[in-house]
Design a protein around this nucleic acid. Structure first.
Length: 121
RNA sequence: UGAGCUGAUUGAACAGUCGCGGGCGUAAGGCGAAAGCCUGCGCGUGAGGAAAGUCCGGGCUCCGCAGGGCAGGGUGCCGGGUAGUUCCCGGUGAAGGCGACUUCAAGGAUAGUGCAACAGAAAUAUACCGCCUGCCUUCAAGGCAGGUAAGGAUGGAACGGCGAGGUAAGAGCUCACCAGCGGACUGGUGACAGUCCGGCUCUGUAAACCCCAUCUGGAGCAACACCGUGGAGGGACAUAUGUGUGGCCCGCACGUCCCAGGGAGGUGGCUUGAGCCGGUCAGAAAUGGCCGGCCUGGAUAGAUGACUGUUCACGACAGAACCCGGCUUACAGAUCAGCUCAGGAA
């Protein structure tokens, strides 16, 4: 059974940044920390260098939507921070989704069945 | 029809499938002694005109505070509106526009100080050139003493402008008109306007110091209130008994309770309010009174999204974070009302 909760407190974020590892894609950067026998927890952030609350909000929504559809195929036992990279403009949904799939494969927390699906695409 | 002015409204729509925050209801499931909590299901609801900048004014909260003064800061034509303002409405004055209309930090420069670059002889007091008079020298002309702000030149600004008289040449020296200054009267609640009289002219700058009038405690929801594991502090009780482990002894491990305080974290503050909509009355308007109806975000890593289809004018600026009232700034467009100018027609 898979559990999913949000990262909530500043120290939880700080722990992932400090102790975890980092991978970067085209539009996303992912910090992750392995915590065996725990649930899957995520936090979403966008750099404040992306100006305007509306743009940051939109980027976060795209990240959350992509994650929502991908999370049933992920393994538990990780704290993940998905960070939108600031380059002045926000990408479209499909770019975010493909970037997220690529990063999860590199991290290696996708299940086998998901990898099959990814290869089909 | 074209060009323009002012005010107001609006800020893509619909359907389907997944998904999120809050609320209400649950005869379903789980946990619990219970209150209730979690999951699921159902219903309904969920960003803006600027939510922004944080420039003013409040509410609310805590701190400070006998009374008075100084300093500092804000405001600055008049009347009204308002909880209140630097806001709004109406007016006065000035500037701009053919006009509708727009713009205005609009008190005081005879309280004082400062500044006014460059140019120019001289910037608040002046004689460079010129003009005129007298004396001296003398071929032309020049020198010395004095008068003079009409003319030249400089400048944003030069003892108010313009005309006439007057004079050696000139000058408000005198007069008419205009501007400005002071006073009286009339009208107006008032800013001010009009008329008359007087003397005779005093540069600009106060978003320079300043003077005058008037207002003014400080910090902010990360305010503040409550709960509060651990650690550290104080007190009480125990000094080898007690508790735990264990069938018991040995052994091993541990002080127990209370108090205030309050770092993480949680709960409240947190949305019914100077509220919105409609009608009516008062008012020139801002606005106010009365009547009826409505409840419309409350998150806390922070909720409105993704995909598909249809339509159009192909979608700008942009996201609540305690709440209101204004101001300012950003903005693709669309709609409505009133008005002005130009041309044309009747």
């Amino acid at each position: 059974m898979k559990q999913y909760t949000k990262l909530r407190f500043n120290y939880e974020f700080a722990r992932v940044y400090r102790k975890g590892r980092r991978v970067s894609g085209r539009v996303l950067t992912m910090h992750y920390l392995r915590r065996p026998n725990r649930g899957l927890r995520t936090g979403v952030t966008v750099s404040r260098r992306l100006k305007g609350a509306v743009k940051r909000n939109r980027f976060k929504r795209l990240i959350r939507e992509s994650f929502r559809l991908l999370k049933p195929d992920l393994e538990s036992g990780y704290d993940i921070i998905i960070m939108g990279r600031a380059d002045g403009s926000i990408p479209d949904y499909e770019t975010v989704r493909q970037d997220m799939i690529r990063l999860f494969k590199r991290v290696g927390i996708s299940c086998a069945e998901t990898q099959n699906r990814c290869e089909e695409e």
